[in-house]
Design a binder for these strands. Structure first.
Length: 294
DNA sequence: CCCCAGTCCTGCGGGC
DNA sequence: TGCCCGCAGGACTGGG
């Protein structure tokens, strides 16, 4: 499930497209069901054809290709989308094939098993409207405690649910929200408006630490094997997960209690009831020593 | 405005 | 053995 580290790994993995000219766009017949193209396929193809890719970027969990004409191609992998320069896992779910000239790679593929992903060609104005600061918060890789507190400090939502709000902070999904709160030693159900300044510091520090470490390991490839880098290789951060997907296993941080699973907003949340206790004094004590150790 | 439930989609694993 | 159902969670929509 591509979140910030996986999309950043995709972005780095497709660096060879920079400088390339788009000489053809193909929507393979093998794609049983077309995914969302915006504008509609014919128009998107016409507007992208002949353009050069001048830079790559990332907007939260989206991969961005900046085109020579000023427009951007924004690829949103959602659950199962992959950005590939190599052969895809299966031919069946290739949604977009871009043929390139003048660079180190001859093609770029967007593969998406479930077809929830999107591909959008947007003008500068559309980009700002859709991915500007009104809709996308500061990037989670460099988010500060002040930014989090300004955006969420008065919210009564559970902190784990709030961290998934892309308008508040961009790039965190279900998996990394759990890992970040574990490192910050904060209970996922804690209301935002009851978090202290040191706790926001702990969350911001944990976000930067966990996400950069996950990038270093090229993201998380879960048991379903969906996430792959640009060369169709698995990441390894799943081997470093402390809580996600580990319900019932002993907590490797405290060595004692087993990891719990609860449901918040119809999504699984994993945490350690001991390290991330709901009790006030305990958490305050732990958070002063917690985040710096990572 | 704030927040939650429902929706899309495919593949997999549990239960019977 | 085979089928069915629930679950996985990105972002978005509609409504309280």
């Amino acid at each position: 499930m591509p979140e910030l580290p996986e999309v950043e790994t995709m972005r780095r993995g497709v660096a060879a497209v920079v400088g390339a000219r788009i000489v053809d766009l193909i929507r393979p017949r093998s794609a049983l069901r077309p995914i969302l193209f915006a504008p509609r396929w014919d128009r998107l193809k016409r507007r992208a054809l002949g353009q050069s890719i001048v830079a790559t970027g990332r907007a939260g969990k989206r991969l961005v290709f900046e085109l020579s004409g000023g427009n951007r191609l924004v690829i949103e992998p959602r659950m199962t989308g992959l950005a590939l320069l190599s052969d895809p896992p299966t031919d069946e779910h290739v949604r977009l094939r871009m043929m390139l000239a003048g660079a180190a790679t001859r093609q770029f593929l967007f593969w998406d098993r479930r077809g929830l992903g999107t591909v959008r060609l947007v003008s500068p104005a559309e980009y700002l409207a859709r991915y500007g600061p009104d809709h996308l918060g500061p990037d989670a890789l460099s988010v500060t405690a002040d930014q989090l507190r300004t955006r969420l400090g008065r919210s009564r939502r559970a902190v784990k649910v709030a961290l998934l709000d892309q308008r508040a902070v961009a790039g965190i999904g279900n998996l990394y929200a759990a890992e970040i709160l574990h490192v910050a030693r904060i209970h996922p159900a804690r209301p935002c408006d009851r978090l202290t300044a040191p706790q926001w510091q702990a969350i911001a520090a944990a976000a930067r630490a966990v996400l950069s470490e996950a990038i270093r390991h090229e993201g998380s490839t879960l048991a379903d094997g969906t996430y792959r880098n640009a060369l169709n290789q698995a990441g390894s951060y799943q081997n470093h997960h402390l809580v996600y997907g580990r319900a019932g296993s002993p907590c490797s941080t405290c060595g004692g209690e087993s990891i719990a699973r609860i449901v918040q907003s119809q999504r699984s949340t994993f945490f350690c009831p001991a390290c991330q206790a709901a009790g006030r004094r305990r958490r305050r004590k732990l958070c002063t020593t917690g985040p710096d150790t990572v």
